[in-house]
Amino acid sequence: MTTTAATEQTTTMARIDFARQAPQVFRAVIGLDAAARAGLDPALVELVQIRSSQLNHCAYCLHMHTTDARRAGESEERLHMTAVWREARHFFTEKEQAALALTEAVTLIADAGVPDGVYERAAAHFEEAELAQLIALILTINTWNRIALATGKVAGTDDRA
């Protein structure tokens, strides 16, 4: 089987319940998530989580965060345009664009690191403490994406309760 064929297979094997099998780690990630969000605009938080989840192909987290964003009053237009924000800049503020660019750079860090221009753009829109929070948020959603993907979480089965 080729690598491509292996990645296209549907998960049929039951996978671990991460929260149950690694409860201390799970609680630590929840704590990190709460700490990372502190002081950030909730709408921006959802946009960052949506963009990272798109890049990581995490349907579980993408469904969860688009649902949360809708409940918080986010427009359908902005949700649909998040994947193509560069071509739809007029839907997003300069600050949101800077955050989305940083989200892409950090999420895809192996591709080119975080270019100076991307970092400088974010630093121009976020005070240092807020920028640190934003970076922590990006790290956290990438962690959640990897947990969801590694454990075969199914989109639409939000189990945060």
Rank of each mutant, 00 (worst) to 15 (best):
A112F: 01
E130M: 13
A98C: 14
A148H: 11
S75P: 15
Q24S: 11
E77N: 10
G39Y: 11
A43S: 07
R27W: 01
Q133A: 15
T3A: 12
A148C: 04
V118Q: 02
E46Q: 07
E77I: 14
A35H: 02
T7A: 02
I138M: 10
A69E: 03
S53P: 02
A105H: 11
H125W: 06
D159G: 07
A155H: 02
L102R: 10
L55P: 08
F92G: 09
Q49F: 11
S53W: 08
N142Y: 11
A112G: 11
L47V: 01
C58L: 02
A101E: 12
T11C: 11
G156I: 05
A101I: 10
V154I: 08
H63D: 13
Q24K: 14
A112C: 10
R20G: 02
F126L: 07
A5K: 01
A148D: 01
T11W: 04
A129C: 01
T140C: 15
A148M: 08
R51K: 15
A43K: 10
A14L: 04
A155K: 01
A129W: 00
G39S: 07
A36I: 12
A110V: 12
T4P: 00
L79Y: 06
A5E: 07
R160C: 02
D17V: 04
A129S: 10
D41I: 06
L79E: 09
A110N: 14
T12R: 03
L137F: 04
P23Q: 09
G31F: 05
E128I: 09
K95G: 08
A124C: 11
V45Q: 06
T67A: 11
I109D: 08
D158I: 12
L79I: 14
Q133K: 15
E94W: 09
H80R: 15
T107G: 02
R27I: 05
L149H: 01
Q9H: 07
A124G: 14
F91I: 06
E104A: 10
L100G: 05
G73L: 04
M64F: 03
Y60K: 01
I16K: 09
N56S: 08
V29K: 04
E104H: 10
M1T: 00
E120Q: 14
I50Q: 07
G156P: 01
E128T: 14
R20I: 03
Q54C: 04
F91T: 14
